[in-house]
Nucleic acid binder design. Structure first.
Lengths: 218, 218
DNA sequence: GTCTATAAAGCGATAGAC
DNA sequence: GTCTATCGCTTTATAGAC
């Protein structure tokens, strides 16, 4: 049972996806949600409030499709092999699992495009609006932590700092590729290929680091 | 002898650096340049014209500090070893030269910040404004080509496609790191460290690719 | 909670004098 | 080329009825 407030948030997400944060007009959101302008102000106080809540709303959705899981999710049906038992972590190559996870950002689904666009806008806007930075930083840390954990199994005894550095590079790269993909400068297939190359390069680097840690003499 | 037109362009670059492309107000540019609003319209026709010319102006400046060169330049005094004879290409390790080149984007100079900010805005805006894409694509291709050429010397007989892929990843990474740096989420030192790690990982990957090309049996 | 109507402000753009 | 003054549209935000 969707209340009007949620309807407005979904509408705002769609508007941001095609006009950008700074192109968002309260009136257009109201029209998209089929409510009056005044109702938007009633629920969200002002334009800035609407923006804040929409960004959080979008962030919550991203967690849903990102960690495959709960019922009712938009099934993250990656480009990989066939389906998996629900909830089962992919057993095979941990690198493949990591790739699959990162490639979710390039699914051509409306929800994914909306989320990627909104996050791109958030990043870009944060350069000029300091109050957006904390949320951005928090989301970034979680995202890096998740990827670092997925990187762990590539080899035994890799120092955590190295995992985090590699994860930081990979997440930054995914963000950049995502922007280019959204702009239309980079087909999803090419983005995927570049990403796989980076994953391979980072994994190789980590294995070498592990060797140096294990036997510093080498 | 700066004419008013140039003064206005410089003012516009500063305004973009602290308000963003989409936060730019013609009136603020006029005030920053200490001229009347009408004069801005006289020289640039309308807001869009001002934006176009400012972006080109900023792009030209970037080439100046990026390829070290002509007289009167802001000397690109990197964090590396001491000065070099003017015009001399660094002779030593080609990887160091590449790193130096990429690290120029993190110099804490007003001009560099302004340029990075403006390009970040251009990228972000292009998601919603298709007419910006061509210039973005052209600049991107040149930048990738330059980095690919710098990557060439890491090993003999590396296929060009591999160089281009690595260069694409590195440029995307630099853009992403630059954004985080501008936002204040990432100190320049940490950005430099991550970048060095990526350069090392990519170089190692290229060397392995070269080996596979040379003796496919391996 | 939701609407219609309207106030108030912001901002791009132009007219016309010098 | 440069200024002052102003027009007119767009957009945010509020008042007040239901």
């Amino acid at each position: 049972m969707k209340d009007r407030k949620t309807v407005i948030l979904e509408a705002a997400a769609r508007v941001i996806a095609c006009r950008g944060v700074r192109g968002l007009r309260v009136e257009e959101v109201a029209a998209e949600a089929r409510v009056s302008k005044a109702l938007v102000y009633y629920h969200f106080k002002d334009r800035a409030g609407l923006l804040r809540r929409t960004l959080r709303f979008v962030g919550d959705r991203a967690e849903r499709y990102t960690r495959g899981g709960g019922p009712g999710d938009a099934a993250p049906r990656g480009p990989g092999p066939g389906d998996l038992a629900p909830g089962a972590r992919v057993p095979g190559d941990p690198l493949r699992e990591l790739e699959r996870r990162l490639l979710l950002e390039f699914q051509d689904l409306p929800e994914v495009r909306e989320n990627s666009t909104a996050w791109g806008e958030l990043r870009a806007s944060a350069v000029f609006e300091p109050e957006l930075r904390e949320e951005l930083a928090r989301a970034g840390r979680e995202w890096v932590r998740e990827i670092a954990d997925l990187l762990g199994p590539v080899g035994p005894a890799v120092p955590d700092a190295a995992l985090v550095s590699a994860a930081e590079r990979l997440t930054v790269l995914v963000e950049g590729l995502s922007t280019r993909w959204l702009v239309g400068l980079l087909p999803a297939g090419h983005a995927a290929e570049l990403l796989r190359g980076a994953v391979a390069a980072e994994a190789e680097g980590l294995r070498r680091a592990a060797v140096r840690t294990a036997c510093p003499a080498a």
